[in-house]
């Protein structure tokens, strides 16, 4: 058959030499390779980390679990415009918008706010397009947290209780966002 690309190589199947047929030289070659790895591992250059004790550093561009941010005064930034839901390629975000009542100015920054805001973490592909779409800089994908595994499917639907940044550093929902100690300190200083 005519070669289409002229890059085809003719594979020559030579009869095996005696050393190849004896198989032992190849075995010793393999053994030396594994022995090299043995000594590399024995001199503490293993490629694995002892996970619960040590963790690998996250990549600087890592995109993890979402958080709905508050502004400096502790008000929710989200205005339920729905741009994130539109941007989401996995259609993981749903929200219900509501009007801010009188006396709720310290809770919500804009007149319109998200009564409910849900992200389905089973659908989410953590692409970060919601973060880019958000005009109010409300939704962020945290760089150091992952969506943890759960036993039930409905536990993967994160509502506002688990997405919104906590108001007080100690007020942590059991399954929601938890602040790192530094973040908690920062929040505490802001509120003080």
């Amino acid at each position: 058959m005519e070669s289409l690309s002229k890059r085809a190589k003719v594979l020559e199947k030579k009869p095996m030499t005696f050393a190849e047929r004896a198989y032992l030289p190849a075995i010793f070659q393999g053994l030396t390779i594994t022995m090299r790895h043995f000594f590399r591992a024995a001199t503490k250059k293993q490629v694995t980390v002892r996970y619960p004790d040590e963790t690998r550093p996250f990549s600087p561009v890592f995109r993890g679990l979402h958080v709905l941010k508050r502004d400096e005064a502790g008000r929710e930034r989200c205005t339920a415009c729905g741009l994130c839901a539109v941007a989401c390629p996995a259609e993981a975000i749903t929200m219900v918008a509501g009007e801010r009542k009188k006396g709720e100015e310290n809770l919500y920054r804009e007149e319109k706010y998200a009564v409910s805001y849900e992200i389905n973490m089973l659908r989410c592909i953590f692409c970060g397009l919601c973060e880019e779409a958000c005009p109010k800089a409300a939704v962020y994908l945290q760089a150091d947290k992952m969506a943890p595994p759960r036993f039930e499917r409905d536990e993967f639907i994160y509502g506002k209780d688990r997405l919104v940044e906590p108001v007080t550093p100690d007020n942590r929902s059991k399954r929601g966002i938890q602040l790192t100690p530094e973040q908690a300190d920062k929040l505490r200083a802001q509120l003080a």
Binding site: T34, M35, H37, F38, R40, A41, Q46, V47, T48, R50
Partner: peptide, 10 residues
């Protein structure tokens, strides 16, 4: 242990 070391593990 030997299996781990031969495979660069712990």
């Amino acid at each position: 242990v030997i299996a781990a070391f031969l495979q660069d593990r712990v």
